[in-house]
């Protein structure tokens, strides 16, 4: 049986893993390569590295870091933040990443999704989406797409955007709730489910994980295929084996830690 994936997200800023609440107030936590390797040894199913300042600073992704991760981590990992074009995607994938994640870039230039999917295969292209609840007109799902690290509202409906991205060739969608991000009070289940039900590709829920029970909820009620965790493991509150064990006890199929 296909298992539900637990993915650890490492936000990287100035070469350090960092974590903020609602995209602000970041503190540095450690070296991304070492932290990634430790999570790999602990049995994480996948890793995501976001270079959170690359876009704002208009500089490319730190390829040396991607290469270093690939030497130590033998599970899939994706890289996002700072992908500017097809050439950046190629460089990241050739450095050993399994997938690239595009977020703001795809909103501004949706063609990058189809170009990437044609060049490298759909499975390589993850659409990252930051969404926030909104009552504004023209947003049937009640969720609006944001770009630039949650700073800029785009007036685009989150579910519409997910459908469009998949039709363009996105192989997976990572849905990040700005409302839930860093709160540790649970994933945004309604948003996750709306998107999981709307598309045929796997959906990764992101934002709000604080306990293993939140993962159980997002796999059951949110119908997510994978759940992103950060704070709950970065601060040592939970270990990967304890999360996997809690999920297995709740009847969620998970990969056993070798």
């Amino acid at each position: 049986m296909l298992t539900k994936r637990v993915i650890v997200c490492l936000d990287v800023r100035n070469g350090k893993v960092t974590k903020g609440v609602k995209f602000a107030g970041n503190v540095d936590l450690g070296d991304p390569v070492e932290m990634g390797a430790q999570y790999y040894r602990d049995g994480v199913d996948e890793l995501v590295f976001y270079d959170i300042m690359a876009s704002a600073e208009k500089r490319p992704i730190d390829i040396a870091m991607v290469r270093a991760v690939a030497r130590k981590v033998f599970i899939p990992f994706s890289v996002g933040g700072g992908i500017r074009n097809l050439e950046d995607m190629r460089e990241v994938l050739l450095a050993g990443a399994e997938k690239v994640s595009v977020n703001s870039l795809a909103v501004q230039n949706p063609d990058i999704i189809s170009q990437g999917a044609r060049a490298f295969g759909k499975q390589c292209i993850v659409l990252g989406m930051d969404a926030k609840r909104s009552d504004a007109p023209g947003l049937p799902s009640g969720y609006e797409v944001y770009v630039q690290g949650g700073r800029k509202a785009m007036g685009i409906d989150a579910v519409d955007w997910a459908r469009r991205a998949v039709s363009l060739g996105a192989g997976e969608i990572c849905v990040n709730s700005i409302d839930a991000d860093g709160t540790k009070s649970g994933y945004e289940l309604k948003l996750t489910r709306l998107i999981a039900d709307a598309v045929e590709v796997p959906v990764i829920a992101s934002g709000g994980a604080g306990t293993p029970a939140h993962l159980v909820d997002v796999f059951r009620e949110g119908r997510a295929d994978a759940g992103l965790v950060a704070s709950m493991v970065h601060y040592g509150t939970y270990s990967l084996p304890s999360i996997k064990s809690a999920l297995a006890t709740a009847g969620i199929p998970v990969r056993s830690v070798p």
Binding site: M1, D45, Q123, D225, A226
Partner: peptide
């Protein structure tokens, strides 16, 4: 969903030198 993406078990159907040291139904 399609693609089939993620960790799935693999059941060994017959013994083979490639499987040495790997438990049956590993992911």
């Amino acid at each position: 969903k399609v693609p089939h993406m993620g960790w799935n078990h693999v059941g060994f159907y017959r013994p083979h030198p490639l499987f040495e040291g790997i438990p049956d139904r590993s992911h």
